[in-house]
Design a protein around this nucleic acid. Structure first.
Lengths: 110, 110
DNA sequence: TTTCTTTATCGTAATATTGCAATATACAAT
DNA sequence: ATTGTATATTGCAATATTACGATAAAGAAA
């Protein structure tokens, strides 16, 4: 099928899945890491940095934006994309809570 | 195309992308959360818990296993799947480092 | 041995994702 | 107004993912 049965899962589960899915491509990881490296980021830089064509990069930026991981400001005819800290906090808190819950488990079976 | 150009990215980028991608489906998030809730987990429980058919769940378990997020022990004719803490640590450390690097940025443009 | 239970695999259909060339858009510069 | 620069969108081909029915495999129970 290819379609995901989102309607059967909780909002939180869908929301975390959407966030992690958006991170689930090396190009998008590379974009995030480039955004961390520079203080101001424009798409044009990424075209030189990544081994992908400009439309492909634009598409990856769109997905990161849809997932709320980055946000973009139009400045003249360039665009300044930045990481949205809220998304990072959310995902970090989630994995941090998993880690805590794991450590609290008594009967580790494996 | 549908194929990912992994060969052009670093091992670490690919590795993080693989981990996050495996988390990027609500059913797999639900599986992880169920594994956290109970101390011992078998696939049969999941079939009752999740709104998906058994082959589909088996497939999701396989992907989590391939990504190193869970590991399975055969016990009789059942299988005990558990979360692999190393994977959680890895992903948690990654997002934690992103968070730190974000906070250290001076020129926030957005 | 036969049957039941549990999990995996195969095959297949439907949909999603990835990637890019071509093109559009929109502002800047001349 | 024309040209150049930066980014987005469209359209398409190739591949991946999701889901499930049917079936296989393998140990447990009878």
């Amino acid at each position: 099928m290819g379609i995901t049965k989102s309607e059967f899962f909780t909002d939180k589960q869908n929301s975390i899945a959407q966030l992690t899915k958006a991170f689930g491509h090396p190009a998008r990881i590379a974009i995030i890491e480039h955004l961390l490296k520079v203080d101001t980021c424009i798409c044009g830089e990424l075209v030189d940095e990544l081994p992908l064509a400009q439309p492909t990069i634009s598409q990856h930026l769109k997905e990161l934006k849809n997932a709320g991981i980055i946000k973009g400001n139009i400045t003249g005819n360039a665009i300044c994309y930045c990481i949205d800290e809220k998304a990072i906090d959310k995902i970090q808190n989630y994995f941090s809570s998993i880690s805590t819950r794991l450590n609290n488990k008594k009967n580790k079976c494996c």
